[in-house]
């Protein structure tokens, strides 16, 4: 009996001790959680800061250069003040336009194929090559296009630049189309097929529209990624100080112009480069923001 009482007594005491320990542990955990949360917030701010600094700096430098005159005129020869970047803006738009015409349909079709065929040898190799293509440095793509397009055609051209950009856009369009369409429920496809809708119409009228917001977002993101490409355009689009809308002639683009003018020795041209940088950044910002808008507005509910 005594032993039992003793045991019970110590049991009670030890459970008191346990409660105290438990209390301490809980408090320590609470402190740890708070520290962790603080660390996360600080790191997030730190990683956002460079972007804000960059934007701030470019805007400060570029805002003086920007005016109507800057947007609609071509650069003037050295020694003359003023002049604009109209040739580069037009060139960039044209390059992207032609690249999109090539890359978007092709990328979406391949994306549809990959989203439909999960297994299979062709799909496997296709997926692999898309991944590899994504990893190829842009300068390498540029030199390839130089070999394949510029040399046989005998001159630098806007067209060859567009091909370069198209090749770089392809993987991300394919990937985003594939991933988006994989999220479209298979039941939608069945619903359409069960209504007697042929397969290709089911794809084009039901499945692609259902994933449209994701596909569009992917397309725009891919554009915003290649719009700033410089290196591969050096041997393809080459650059052109005059306005040009012929896709088989050399053409300028904003990154090319920035590259050329920023490395020159004239303060006037430096100023033009800053202004062009700002135009480029604004373009990219608009593209990114419109992606967000499309995703929230056009999102299909399943």
């Amino acid at each position: 009996m005594e032993i039992m009482v003793d045991k019970t007594g110590s049991g009670v005491r030890s459970s008191f001790n346990q409660a105290a320990t438990l209390d301490r542990t809980v408090r320590a955990r609470g402190i740890k959680s708070r520290l962790f949360r603080l660390a996360v917030i600080i790191l997030t701010v730190i990683s956002t800061a460079p972007l804000l600094f960059i934007l701030f700096y470019i805007f400060r430098q570029g805002i003086h250069a920007i005016n109507w005159h800057f947007l609609v005129n071509i650069p003037r020869p050295v020694g003359e003040t003023g002049g604009g970047v109209a040739n580069a803006i037009l060139g960039t738009v044209l390059l992207i336009l032609v690249a999109s015409v090539v890359a978007i349909p092709l990328g979406i079709l391949v994306g549809i194929y990959l989203s439909q065929v999960v297994t299979g040898r062709l799909a496997y190799w296709c997926r692999l090559s898309v991944d590899v293509l994504q990893g190829i440095p842009s300068i390498v793509i540029g030199i390839l296009i130089y070999e394949w397009v510029v040399r046989p055609m005998g001159s630098f051209s806007s067209f060859s630049g567009s091909m370069t950009l198209a090749l770089m856009m392809l993987p991300s369009i394919i990937k985003s189309t594939e991933e988006t369409l994989k999220l479209v429920p298979g039941s939608l496809q069945e619903a359409s097929l069960a209504l007697g809708v042929p397969y290709y119409r089911t794809m084009m009228k039901v499945i692609v529209p259902a994933g449209m917001s994701g596909i569009l977002a992917g397309v725009i993101l891919s554009i915003s990624r290649v719009i700033g490409e410089t290196a591969p355009l050096l041997f393809t689009a080459f650059g052109n100080p005059y306005l040009n809308s012929n896709i088989f002639k050399p053409i300028s683009s904003l990154p090319l112009l920035i590259f050329n003018y920023a490395t020159s020795a004239y303060a006037d041209w430096h100023q033009l480069a800053w202004g062009a940088s700002m135009v480029l950044i604004v373009m990219i910002l608009v593209l990114n923001l419109s992606t967000k808008l499309i995703q929230s507005r056009w999102k299909a509910q399943f």
């Binding site: 939608l188 359409s192 039901v206 529209p209 399943f302």
Partner: peptide, 12 residues
């Protein structure tokens, strides 16, 4: 005509 397990109206 066929009706499926989960309702599947066309979302677009």
């Amino acid at each position: 005509g066929m009706v499926f397990q989960r309702p599947n109206p066309f979302p677009t």
